[in-house]
Design a protein around this nucleic acid. Structure first.
Lengths: 107, 107
DNA sequence: CTGTATCCTGAACGATACTG
DNA sequence: CAGTATCGTTCAGGATACAG
């Protein structure tokens, strides 16, 4: 559990993972999708996630430089985890019973 | 999802919740079960979790003061969430396939 | 017993500017 | 395009002492 929390450490990490769950992205695509993150933080998170074995960096030769970020198999398995986080947050306001009916997905 | 992460905010929050998933506890029982937390942090987490509607504080009259902390129904529903975090962390080291066979539980 | 008050440190965050 | 460097701010966390 500590491992997971360490991998997801940081306020924005889950958002980055969520974005990559939809498919791989370039750096600028991530920047557009997550405008609240500064360059530094986005870079930090990508590095951290790389070290955690969650994302893979694919640098393509040529000019201009193109880099694609994709989830590793291990990263893909974070899908259910994020879904669990999402679900609890979505149903949390209700005291008990009577959950939100539709099967909302985070994707 | 932000709601969930806000509720679980802090390095030690999940450990407090995990402890309370086993049943309600007094303050001193929590302190013994979680020796790594300073008084301040434990108090902070309990207050935060109270405001998040996850734990309930039950102050009993008389002397010496006795207080019991218990999860609300909403807090109980964090069980599967923590389990998801636990599971990912437990299987993460393996690249793919061949998971840890036993159905380890965090409780 | 059950906490709160205070002070301190280190880490995350955010903005901006700059490099390969 | 894809980042890194630097700097200042903010905030969680740890230790200790004190209070209801």
């Amino acid at each position: 559990m500590e491992i997971t929390l360490a991998a997801l450490h940081g306020r924005w990490t889950t958002l980055v993972v969520r974005e990559l769950l939809r498919g791989d992205h370039s750096y600028s695509e991530l920047r557009v999708a997550l405008p609240t993150l500064s360059d530094k933080v986005l870079s930090d998170r990508l590095t951290q996630l790389g070290e955690a074995g969650v994302v893979e960096r694919d640098r393509q030769p040529g000019w201009p430089p193109r880099v694609r970020y994709a989830l590793t198999p291990r990263g893909q398995r974070l899908g259910p985890v994020l879904q669990a986080l999402w679900d609890w947050g979505a149903q949390a306001p209700r005291e008990d019973g009577a959950e939100i009916s539709c099967g909302t997905s985070l994707l």
